[in-house]
């Protein structure tokens, strides 16, 4: 494990904690896209099936359990917790997210490293993760008042992907057989989707103003 990956994982963990803090402590999910959260739950459920088949490290297994548990509990909170559910921006969160699932599945069936059940699902999870943030970005654009926690959540999530790219560059040069085009391209696409958000986030930070995305 290199420093970029550890930093990436920790940033990812921090993003989840920020979101849980908002939902659990403030009992609000205003500005948070349930569609994106549902997609992440599917992403982790399909990617981490290898919990049952292979063991890498205690760290690896623990983190997988944390991401699985947190993504499903966030979805359940938003759907079924009375107070949290009331703060959900249902009218604004209208992205047709299920339309992302089928193309990702088809793409995974066509383009993968190995044609096995677990490998195709794993590839599907990479493609889906790349686009899972879209409903959240659309919702942010429609939300007039983006609160700090929601902004930080998206910023940390984007930061995690950026750090993973550095990790892949590092691994490419230090591990002789580490070449994974599918992972890299979907990771790059995912990071690029944040470019616009990062720009406005840094502007608001620099000018010490509230974050607002142009319509």
């Amino acid at each position: 494990m290199n420093i970029f990956r550890l930093a990436g994982d920790m940033t990812h963990l921090a993003s989840v904690l920020v979101l849980l803090l908002k939902i659990h402590t403030i009992k609000s999910c205003a500005g948070v896209s349930l569609k994106t959260q549902e997609l992440y739950a599917i992403v982790f459920a399909t990617r981490y099936l290898d919990i049952f088949t292979s063991f890498y490290s205690i760290y690896n297994t623990l983190m997988k359990l944390v991401f699985l548990g947190s993504s499903f509990s966030i979805v359940l909170y938003m759907k079924y917790h009375k107070t949290v559910h009331r703060s959900y921006d249902r009218e604004q969160d209208t992205f047709r997210h299920w339309f992302l699932v089928l193309p990702c599945l088809l793409l995974a069936l066509l383009i993968h490293e190995k044609f096995t059940f677990l490998e195709v699902l794993w590839t599907f999870s990479l493609y889906l993760e790349a686009v899972a943030i879209l409903p959240q970005l659309v919702l942010l654009q429609r939300t007039r008042n983006i609160d700090n926690l929601t902004g930080q959540y998206v910023f940390l999530l984007g930061g995690y992907r950026g750090l993973y790219i550095l990790n892949w560059i590092y691994r490419y040069f230090t591990e002789p057989h580490f070449v994974h085009w599918i992972t890299w391209i979907s990771g790059l696409v995912q990071t690029l989707l944040y470019a616009d958000f990062f720009f406005y986030y840094s502007q608001s930070w620099k000018n010490n103003k509230k974050l607002q995305l142009p319509a």
């Binding site: 990956r5 890498y56 993973y164 990790n167 057989h177």
Partner: peptide, 10 residues
């Protein structure tokens, strides 16, 4: 030899 897979990542 086999390519090291990326499954050790999260």
């Amino acid at each position: 030899e086999e390519t090291e897979n990326a499954h050790d990542e999260l």
